[in-house]
């Protein structure tokens, strides 16, 4: 997937309120655009389309569609440098998480992340530990990994609303 720089076309000034309501998005309006987040960002250094301060600014201005449909918001590695260093405690990484949560509710999730979320929903883990893995563990003298109580885990995730951000179950 090649990142494309969002080209602002239409703005929705009310969009910021959506971000502010989301967990971690509540400090959005504190940003005075100093750029400390982008300056210390390891991804920004290698990827020209990714600038956390631009994402923050676009959220405030309300470039809703450009942000939510773009894969740029999925390029953050959550290293938390911006979170630690922001002089205004905007917590840019958490704003990006808020944007991802909003995007997910509108059906925008990159395939890699969608697949992982589906596994967590179906088997309670990212990777399934089968007899094959447990035999390899036994060879090393390690105890078998007990299976997740999938029915229970599914109940928890269903109640939390995971189905709504995943494609319909067959």
């Amino acid at each position: 997937m090649v990142a494309e720089k969002p080209s602002p076309k239409r703005i929705d000034p009310a969009f910021k309120n959506l971000v502010l309501k989301e967990e971690g998005g509540d400090h959005l309006l504190r940003c005075y655009a100093c750029g400390t987040c982008s300056g210390g960002c390891p991804v920004a250094e290698l990827e020209a389309t990714f600038r956390p301060h631009e994402i923050i600014r676009m959220s405030i201005f309300g470039f809703k569609d450009e942000l939510l449909s773009s894969n740029v918001i999925w390029l953050c590695s959550f290293c938390y440098n911006c979170y630690e260093r922001c002089p205004r405690d905007v917590k840019p990484a958490m704003v990006i998480r808020a944007l991802r949560n909003i995007a997910a509710r509108q059906g925008y999730v990159p395939n890699g992340i969608k697949m992982i979320a589906e596994s967590v929903y179906k088997i309670g883990r990212v990777t399934e530990i089968t007899d094959f893995e447990n035999e390899a563990r036994a060879d090393l003298g390690l105890p078998a990994v007990e299976p997740v109580d999938i029915e229970k885990m599914k109940k928890v995730l269903k109640k939390a609303g995971l189905e709504k951000v995943l494609p319909k179950e067959e």
Binding site: E22, E23, G24, W74, R97, R100, N101, A104, V109, I113, K114, I116, A117, V120, G124, R125, V126, E146, P147, V148, D149, M153, V156, L157, K159, A160, G161, L162, V165
Partner: peptide, 19 residues
């Protein structure tokens, strides 16, 4: 019976991660 810690779904559903 430990499951995924939830980190991998934090980006799509905050409450799902927390739960």
């Amino acid at each position: 019976g430990a499951s995924c810690c939830g980190l991998q779904i934090e980006s799509v559903l905050y409450n799902g991660w927390l739960a």
